[in-house]
Amino acid sequence: MPDRSQESAHLDELDLSLVNTLQIDPRAPWSRIGRALELDPVTVARRWSRLTEAGVAWITAQPGRAQISQGCLAFVEVNCQAGRALEVANTLAQWPHVMTVDHTSGGRDLLLTVSMPTLPALSGYLLERLAALPGVSATRTQLGTHVFTHATDWRLRALDPRQRAQITAERPPRSPSTPQTFTTRDRLLSVRLGVDGRTSLTDLAEELGVGITTVRKRLARLIANEDLELRCEVAQPLCGWPISTTIWAQAHLDDRDALTRLLAAVPEIRACIGLAGGTANLLISVWLRSLSDIRGLESRLTSALPQLKVLDQAVSLRFVKRMGRILDPAGRSVSTVPMDIWSDPS
């Protein structure tokens, strides 16, 4: 493991700009990123290597909206016996179907993001594995029904308009292709890119036993059809947005224009997901600059969407795992648990 004792408390402007370009296009060639940032491509590649080796930024792949809609996305609140929350969190972090483990304030100890292929599989997972885990005292589950916006859409906003326009303009167009069956090879490709979203086509082709052209076409098709989403992540405490809060709310989800206005009015929203199975029908995840920003957040949300009613809120004390990555207390990636959500959960 690399020595991180000398890591800065914050990323510098160039680091943030580099992460921002990769949020827009996670597999962009270094030559294109260099043009946008007015840097030599070798310099950019070395800078990214330094960030990934330190665990402060990384690119992963996650199941896309199409895969989530075909399976089951669940948000599970977990209460733990006194003094056992960290033990439970560390155990759950090693489970591939538990994509995220969040230690929170409020009326639950942990908030999990879980993905399963079917409802019966989810039921068995919750009843037979999670409920029986030593240290767990109670759980509550809500299902995600629709992804209005996801963290893959969120940006650091570190680029100036010229840089943003250049990296966006040079990004290859993404148009939906004819839907095809999600194959075992697609699953292997998705899991491999979850470990390193910038793995070269040459390495992917060798690992999958196919040609480079086949991998290139299949990857483009998976992304275009939203079976797979590439995502550039960053250690949250180091990027200037150290506070994460989750809100459970009620709103009229059939008013999509109103939800669009909400997302435009509160750009700090990282995810907005429809829920079923509880009083709340909307889960909103927000990144903020400071704890004091929470004070005016509810009024900003209701001003943008007057019919929205906030029911509950939790502040993240620490992410133990985020989308397949085990994190240290500073939010840096230390290891990966491949998100093979298609595997047998038993």
Rank of each mutant, 00 (worst) to 15 (best):
A264T: 15
C232A: 13
A276P: 07
W241R: 02
C239I: 12
T260V: 06
T260A: 13
A249P: 02
E233T: 11
G278P: 10
T246G: 11
A235N: 05
A235S: 04
A265G: 10
R221K: 13
I247Q: 12
W248N: 09
L238Q: 05
D254H: 14
L283C: 07
Q236A: 06
L230A: 14
A220Q: 11
P237E: 05
N281R: 08
V234D: 00
L222F: 05
A220M: 07
C232I: 01
R270N: 14
S244T: 07
D255N: 08
L230G: 05
A249K: 00
A258E: 14
T246I: 15
R221I: 03
L275V: 05
D227Y: 01
R256K: 11
A276W: 06
G274T: 02
T260N: 10
G277V: 07
W248I: 04
P267F: 06
A235T: 08
A271I: 03
C272F: 03
L230H: 11
L238C: 12
L262S: 01
R231N: 04
L283G: 00
C272E: 09
N225D: 12
A249V: 01
L222I: 00
E268D: 15
A224L: 14
L282G: 10
A249D: 01
H252C: 08
E233I: 08
I223N: 05
A235V: 07
A235G: 09
L238V: 02
I269N: 01
T245P: 06
G278Q: 06
A258D: 13
P267W: 09
L228Q: 08
G240Q: 04
R231D: 04
N281H: 08
L253R: 06
G240A: 05
E229V: 02
G240V: 04
I247V: 13
W248M: 13
Q236H: 10
T260M: 12
I273F: 12
D227F: 04
P267M: 11
I247M: 09
I273Y: 05
N225A: 15
E226N: 15
L253V: 15
D254C: 13
G278D: 11
